[in-house]
Amino acid sequence: MARRVLLIEDEPNIIEAISFILTRDGWTVHTHEDGETAAERVRKLPPDLVILDVMLPGRSGFDILQDLRGNAATKDIPVMMLTARGQAKDREMAMQLGATHFMTKPFSNAEVLENVRALVGA
């Protein structure tokens, strides 16, 4: 069975592009745009990897990450955070809260693929 990625991001064209390259690479891609209900979506799926944007409508990516790490069912799922370039504090916060990895926008498709493969393969 294809491994599952849940992409939590609110920018439609980014969702489309990342979904396309991951699907082409053999992943099953689920997407979710709302911060408020994101943690619940992760619990219901649950995916092999979560890609989580920091800035989401409803609830920040940091809050969602904290929820995921505090729940037995989701605490071990690798989470790759998407942060804005140069926001050192965001990166520190993401790592403190238990993110597995972070990527800074704007990233390249090659970076996305490389990191997704490394995080789930590991």
């Binding site: 926008k105 390249s108 498709n109 090659a110």
Partner: peptide, 13 residues
């Protein structure tokens, strides 16, 4: 940043 990310990713595809 979001738009640039989207453009970069889409252009690359």
């Amino acid at each position: 940043l979001s738009t640039v990310t989207s453009i970069r990713s889409t252009a690359s595809i």
